[in-house]
């Protein structure tokens, strides 16, 4: 797991010893993780485990003191402004979707493509978005604030896609959605993955996340307590019991942690 080779082409994101502190309070304590190129990595953990702080710190959108190292395709990103990190091909789909409510769906998507200078490329991306998420085409002219929660999540994904990212960070994409919509969201995550982006996702909904993830980490009180492939982590008895609520797997599974 400690592949710190600067130009390892197989690594999309390498995080070493990330620490995030708000004043005296430590939210993330020495977290390390690796997102292999082309993988879907899920970080699981309960409320307050430090998931959102991790994502915000990586995306450069936090007011806290940060230590450690993070390399995106070999280039160091910690401490850069959020817009510079976005320019390097990593985009965060923030917690709670955060669509720009007064702008139309189409304008939100165009904003996602803010750094695409070529109009032709923008049109291609827009077409791709509409293909993946037809609802965004149907409601192109309505204000984003009028969409349902699930539709807003699709818009947040589409908006991320518009920047043509190599790595997408997702902060609790299923939060606050109806169970049916959670499945749709996970399908969308898979679709974005098939399209070629690596994905780092934090989720409380471990069962759903493990269905689409290739690798998984378990975060507790700011530390990684367990890691492995999604299957390994999913079958670990402690994880199964604590996060998945699956009793029989808890008895049958192999310990990964």
């Amino acid at each position: 797991m400690s592949g710190t080779d600067e130009n390892d082409p197989d690594t999309a994101l390498q995080v070493d010893d990330l620490t995030v502190r708000y004043g005296q309070v430590t939210a993330v304590a020495g977290l390390s993780l690796r997102v292999p190129s082309g993988s879907v990595v899920a970080v699981l953990g309960a409320n307050g485990a430090g998931k959102t702080s991790t994502m915000r710190a990586l995306a450069g959108s936090i007011r806290a003191s940060i230590d450690g190292r993070a390399r995106l395709f070999g280039g160091s990103i910690l401490g850069l402004s959020a817009h510079r990190i976005a320019a390097r091909g990593m985009v965060l789909v923030p917690e709670g979707r955060q669509v720009i409510a007064p702008l139309t769906v189409e304008e939100n998507l165009l904003l996602g493509g803010y750094r695409q200078r070529s109009r032709a490329r923008l049109r291609e991306l827009m077409a791709e978005c509409h293909e993946l998420f037809p609802i965004l085409h149907e409601r192109a002219d309505s204000p984003a604030g009028l969409l349902s929660g699930g539709e807003q999540q699709m818009l947040a994904f589409g908006r991320a896609l518009m920047s043509d990212p190599r790595l997408i960070l997702m902060d609790e994409p299923s939060m606050g959605l109806a169970p049916v919509m959670v499945d749709r969201v996970m399908e969308a995550v898979e679709a974005l993955h098939r399209r070629g982006a690596s994905i780092l996702m934090v989720e409380q909904n471990a069962a759903s996340a493990l269905q689409v993830a290739t690798h998984a980490y378990v975060l507790d009180q700011g530390r990684i307590v367990c890691s492995g492939t999604a299957t390994e982590v999913g079958s670990d008895p402690v994880v199964a019991q604590t996060f998945l609520g699956l009793r029989e797997q808890a008895q049958a599974g192999q310990a990964a942690c």
Binding site: S61, S81, H83, L103, L110, G112
Partner: peptide
Amino acid sequence: TRYGRAIRALAYDPTTTQLLGVNVG
């Protein structure tokens, strides 16, 4: 325009606008 969209987005939510790659400053 692109700049106009950025201004309107900034008025509503500067943090998210910056996440989308807009140099808010």
